[in-house]
């Protein structure tokens, strides 16, 4: 199956360095259409007004966490099927399970490399 690399990706992280790194890594693996949001609220507003094909979000953000954002996305009739990858330094089993129960499409532990990012995107887009 050929992966559609023209999809618009929303990168959500309150750490500017990290959004910049992820956007650059996305470019390296040929995803050139990306936007960013600094927290869950901004992300929701962008998702509701834009045409995104994938969300890559950090978990640790205030005031709305990545998990809260995920739950809002899954509760939104128009967005509920949107592929959603959580990228976080947190790797405790119970939190991964909590994210999975909330409907996360995949989960990447920081630090990660471009190959892991590509592999996870391909995997979630194959099921989208």
């Amino acid at each position: 199956m050929t992966l559609d690399r023209s999809i618009k990706v929303l990168v959500v992280d309150d750490y500017k360095t990290m959004t910049r790194i992820i956007r650059n890594l996305l470019k390296q693996i040929d995803f050139h259409d990306a936007d960013e949001a600094a927290d869950g609220h901004e992300a929701l507003a962008k998702l509701r007004s834009g045409n995104f094909g994938l969300v890559i979000s950090d978990w640790n953000m205030v005031p709305m966490t990545g998990l809260d954002l995920l739950k809002e996305v899954r509760a939104d009739a128009r967005l509920k099927h949107l592929p959603f990858i959580m990228v976080t330094a947190e790797s405790k089993t119970e939190n991964v399970v909590a994210a999975k129960q909330a409907g996360v499409s995949n989960y990447i532990v920081k630090p990660f490399n471009a190959e892991t990012l590509r592999e996870k995107i391909e995997k979630v887009m194959a099921h989208a």
Binding site: S91, K92, T93, V109
Partner: peptide, 23 residues
């Protein structure tokens, strides 16, 4: 509220491959 604990020390967390197995 609801924030995680951040990066774990080696031995306190599960690996990416173990997480992959959950998916």
């Amino acid at each position: 509220a609801m924030l995680l604990n951040g990066p774990q020390l080696p031995g306190n967390a599960i690996s990416q491959s173990a997480i992959d197995a959950l998916f």
